[in-house]
């Protein structure tokens, strides 16, 4: 194979361009951090940062799974409920004497299956993802209330609770879990046929079908992965809050979708990266944390959050329109 000179030049240019979305996000984050360091006392303290990182990790893990769904052209509104479900289920199982490891494994597996059920509705039932997962969001939340009798579940085993507080090599354990999952999902999107298939399905279902892609299996896996990530996040949440909380995870779907979108994913599919989503999640969490430190009314923070989502998509559209 001969190496084309102009071709190589162009791919370099392409890389520089790619950096733009993610580079902008990094820049935004730095500005935010500098601003908060200067204007608040508590931002750049070990305590605050490790708190920030712990909270980001849980939302960030949910967003990782959501990224696959969004790239495939779908949406998963049920993740918040799955977070809550896994959190309650693991607590209930441990309370009834199931060993920690087994309880965790069972909760994660069931979360995965809940996701697969979404995939089943979307692929086999041909129900639009928005509706299918809106339904399961409500169904799963109802199930949580039913199995927990809407009560908090306390008195969980100490080793389980300790996990959220431990550190590895000076990093909070929750953060380490997130990091591992980030690497895993980057691997999936960039290096595996599965990842390519997700993008292809997101760009055109008929093309994917005629190209021999196993759409059924891939759809199950996409939503399964979203459920799996939400399940892991739910278990970590219970460990962090030291209780199984029936309302836990409510609204997490919004944060996850926002992270994807701020990170450059397109809700019409075929666009988005894990790295973008991670940066999106960090930006949302930093804003929230900074807002608290600055003593800004949390309701106003919510408004700001909304504005940022809209602005991020606007900037992205603007950038695309002026690409040529």
């Amino acid at each position: 194979m001969k190496a084309h000179q102009p071709v190589e030049q162009d791919s370099k240019e392409k890389k520089r361009f790619k950096l733009k979305t993610e580079g902008t996000l990094v820049l935004l984050l730095l500005v935010l951090a500098v601003f908060l360091t200067i204007f608040t006392r508590g931002f750049l303290t070990g305590n605050n940062l490790s708190n920030l990182v712990r909270q980001t990790a849980i939302n960030g893990i949910v967003a990782l799974g959501m990224t696959f769904v969004v790239i495939s052209g779908g949406i998963d509104l049920s993740v918040g409920s799955v977070v809550g479900f896994a959190g309650i289920l693991v607590a209930l199982l441990m309370k009834s004497g199931v060993p920690i490891g087994l309880a965790v494994l069972a909760s994660i597996s069931i979360s995965f299956l809940l996701g697969v059920a979404n995939g089943f509705m979307v692929f086999d039932g041909r129900i639009p993802p928005f509706i299918a997962t809106l339904g399961s969001m409500s169904i799963i939340r109802g199930a949580i209330m039913l199995i927990s009798r809407a009560r908090m579940i306390a008195g969980l085993p100490k080793p389980f609770l300790d996990f959220a507080q431990t550190t590895y090599l000076g990093l909070p354990a929750l953060f380490v879990v997130w990091l591992v999952l980030i690497l895993f999902t980057i691997f999936l999107t960039k290096k595996t046929p599965f990842g390519r298939n997700v993008y292809t399905i997101g760009s055109n279902l008929e093309v994917a079908r005629l190209s021999g892609i196993n759409i059924r299996f891939t759809t199950y896996m996409i939503y399964g992965l979203s459920g799996l990530m939400a399940g892991i996040a739910g278990i970590l949440m219970t460990s962090r809050l030291a209780n199984g909380i029936p309302t836990g995870g409510q609204g997490y779907e919004m944060d996850a979708i926002a992270s994807c979108v701020i990170g450059g994913a397109s809700l019409s599919g075929a666009e988005g990266t894990i790295l973008g989503t991670v940066l999106g999640a960090v930006i949302i969490a930093t804003l929230r944390n900074g807002g608290n430190l600055l003593g800004i009314d949390p309701f106003i923070l919510q408004i700001v959050n909304g504005v940022i989502i809209v602005a991020a998509v606007y900037i992205d559209q603007y950038r695309k329109a002026h690409q040529k």
Binding site: R196, N197, Y199, T200, E206, V207, A208, L210, G212
Partner: peptide, 21 residues
């Protein structure tokens, strides 16, 4: 456009679409 190509993806990915396994 509607049956043959994943339009938003690269030439490289499209050419390899049947090959990934």
């Amino acid at each position: 456009r509607t049956q043959g190509l994943a339009l938003p993806l690269s030439v490289k990915i499209n050419i390899n679409l049947l090959q990934y396994k």
